[in-house]
Design a protein around this nucleic acid. Structure first.
Lengths: 365, 365
DNA sequence: GTGAAAGCGCTAACAC
DNA sequence: GTGTTAGCGCTTTCAC
């Protein structure tokens, strides 16, 4: 603002008291007589005094600002998390700075650096999956409070994580299909570690580091394996469809799968992008949901209820993830953090019409 | 960050020069000898010096931070605008603070106040439509640079606006339907001023204040009237369907319309929410697109290409709106602003399959 | 209860 | 080219 802002000095002068007296009143700290308070408040109101948070931050060392770093706020999951974070941040007296990385480690590093220069009080970060997260570690080493969102990777074991329980989410979907009577359930997942590695983890607890350090897509496969195992069903590696993280890649993979493997009676896609691609693939093959195939998607999206039949999905508590991340972050900032800091929230099934009991012989076209 | 940050003094000491010498090197201002520069840069790197933007801002009066205030970042339109703004802000050296208002004038006022206290250099605001925007005017009066996004209302005539050309967007859609051969075109719009008021504006230029001060929903109706007028078609007020700003309200309104008015051969919905509701209503009535009815929606949404036939829509250049808002805002901040400051961007038709030439007698069920 | 004064980290005159 | 100094607006001892 170009025009000279009114400072505490202006207020003090008008009130006829000292700078510090005015400060005590305006910052509600220290003591002041009723008369002084009255005069100062009056002057402040008259002049339209607005405290300069910059100066306040210089003194106190706290900016009451936090940063959130995500791949892309246009992705509905992240915009919802941002919203949940933002609402709660406001309530707790924090402003929120936003940055997008497009999953580029360099941009992420630069964003973190800039936030640090701005002296944010803490950062919520959905990290780019990278080999050597040195930029993150550097910040943490300098005692910047950081809360991880959605994912974690080796090297960041000691940072608190707020995320959905990925394995559990897929397990829920798979178990739901099993409960409907399906035994040959295909899974559409991003490329991930070899199956043997993942199979060793089916018995692990949700917060087992070996599990939470895997990328979300791998954790989701673990949940699938766990559900099959619990039901006593054999794993057929041929039923695990690998795809890149794009709609077209997923569509292609699903179409190819449906062409070569007509025994599957159900399919679960493990993230939002793959869900869109899978749906297109199913449609391209001319299959009817749920009679020809039962389908459960991941993440609720508007289209899942615009198509017919509406698509059953596993939904993450997006805004609550943001709210939780804020809570954890503030507890660290205020030094009131108490272990455990990890928060793995449960996903929720939104049961609609795309998954049903298998129809005998349906896939035997 | 709890640990003592390294300051310019630490750097100067280590480099064996004065504070100001170090400052000159680090801020790339003023002159310094090669030797000094070398020593300072070296010391800074060794110590991991990170400039304190707070202190810098205190001195310079510029925080290099801007704020964006929108109804809700979860709405795809706003998250995309935010993205466009954010990318360009970064490139221009600004950080971005975000706030959601949920269309509540009090929350908006509070947000603006808080941003002002943070001493942001400027604000991009999608204002809550309100009678008396005093909080906004107060800020502007104090010379805070403000750019309006998407809408403007009486009292804010002097503030620059970055928006899609609402009237033109609807005109494009309506004209497209007319070009296909439709003559009885229904419009789904939010409740708006009486038709007579709007009809007077069909001849106005895009940036006519009388037009840009209307709420977007009203401007869109003007575009519809203009298209009909240009084609020499009569306006039948019965074909303008009024609805509240919710999917269910829109669905109900469309269903009722389709029941009582079977002469319409085409329908255009004038915003994203109404488009979803209209589509549901059309489906609930069992109509086939485009044979029973041609349909054009507003704002591209993922579901419009997930359903079959895919829905033709008018799309706003969302990210470009954000980018443009940033450009205008920075020009004001830097004092290089040159009239005209209003930017009305053109919407674009995404032609898909839900609109086609009318089929004779199709609606005569 | 109140005022004087120091100082947060940085920049920009200003002398040298 | 370099160092000294003042000061951005605020909070917070510390005497009185």
């Amino acid at each position: 603002m170009a025009r000279e802002a009114v400072t505490i000095i202006d207020v003090a002068q008008m009130a006829g008291v000292s700078k510090s007296a005015a400060a005590r009143v305006l910052a509600r700290s220290g003591s002041a007589s009723a008369a002084t308070r009255e005069k100062v408040l009056h002057a402040a109101a008259n002049l339209g005094y607005r405290p300069n948070q910059l100066a306040r931050a210089m003194k106190s060392g706290a900016t009451n600002t936090i940063g959130i770093v995500v791949p892309d706020v246009v992705i509905p999951f992240f915009s919802a998390v941002l919203r949940g974070l933002s609402d709660n941040a406001r309530a707790a007296g924090f402003e929120v700075l936003v940055s997008n990385t497009d999953n580029d480690a360099d941009i992420e590093a630069r964003s973190l650096e800039l936030f640090a220069e701005q002296r944010v009080d803490g950062i919520v970060l959905a990290p780019v999956l990278q080999e050597n997260p040195s930029a993150i570690l550097k910040l943490v080493d300098e005692e910047m409070p950081v809360v991880l969102l959605d994912r974690r990777m080796p090297g960041l074991e000691h940072l608190p994580l707020v995320s959905v329980d990925h394995a559990n989410a897929t397990e829920q979907a798979t178990s739901a299909l099993i409960a409907l009577g399906h035994e040959r359930i295909a899974l559409l997942a991003e490329a991930a570690p070899p199956l043997s590695t993942l199979q060793e983890l089916t018995a692990s607890t949700p917060n087992n580091p070996a599990l939470t350090l895997l990328r979300p897509s791998a954790q989701r496969i673990v949940g699938y394996l766990r559900a099959l195992e619990q039901a006593g069903l054999d794993v057929d590696e041929d039923f695990i469809i690998r795809s890149g993280y794009t709609t077209t890649s997923a569509q292609t993979a699903v179409e190819a799968f449906l062409q070569r493997q007509s025994m599957a009676t159900a399919l679960h896609a493990t993230n939002a992008v793959l869900t869109s691609g899978a749906y297109r693939g199913i449609r391209a093959r001319g299959l009817q949901l749920p009679d020809d195939l039962s389908f459960i998607g991941f993440d609720d999206q508007e289209w899942t209820t615009m198509v017919q039949p509406a698509v059953t999905v596993v939904e993450q508590p997006r805004q609550r993830l943001g709210a939780t991340a804020l809570t954890v972050l503030t507890s660290i900032i205020r030094g009131t953090a108490a272990a455990p800091l990890d928060h793995l929230l449960d996903a929720e099934m939104l049961v609609r019409e795309s998954a049903a009991a298998p129809v005998q012989g349906a896939q035997l076209r």
